[in-house]
């Protein structure tokens, strides 16, 4: 009797459990659905002025302009005064509060590194200034 019982038990176990196949399939399914959603497009969006003639580009009064200048050594000047990157945001905020017509111009020297320009652009965006434009220092 003991021998028979042993045999039965072995036979009963020789089966691969299939109940969890759908779980596995769903797991893979979720993975493949979610993966393309992961966007690597993260950044700062901007509108360029487009094709303009020299004549009809917008004229802005000098007193409404705040110029952030990045020179070739990587120094940042705010209206001619040296400024720390972190202070830009506050400086622009104060400017816009005092005069809501303020246009921020980010002027970058061609030899300055792009990363610094993006860092400044980031600060300008964070300050909430609506009107701003990019400019390249002419040599």
């Amino acid at each position: 009797m003991g021998v028979l019982a042993k045999r039965k038990r072995i036979r009963g176990n020789s089966e691969i459990p299939m109940a969890s196949t759908s779980d596995v399939a769903f797991l893979l399914l979720v993975f493949f659905i979610v993966m393309p959603m992961k966007s690597d497009e993260i950044g700062i969006s901007l509108m360029l002025p487009g094709k303009t003639n020299k004549n009809d580009s917008a004229k802005v009064s000098q007193k409404n302009v705040a110029v952030i200048k990045i020179n070739e050594n990587g120094r940042i000047l705010f209206d001619g005064q040296p400024i720390q990157l972190k202070s830009i945001q506050q400086a622009i905020r104060e400017r816009v509060q005092a005069n809501d017509k303020t246009v921020v111009i980010l002027e970058t020297h061609p030899d300055a590194v792009y990363g610094l320009m993006v860092a400044c652009l980031d600060e300008v965006k964070l300050s909430g200034a609506r009107k701003f434009s990019l400019k390249t220092t002419e040599l």
Partner: peptide, 12 residues
């Protein structure tokens, strides 16, 4: 600007 492709995006 010449091509009138005015929407730009700086990836960061």
């Amino acid at each position: 600007k010449e091509a009138n492709a005015v929407k730009v995006f700086f990836n960061t």
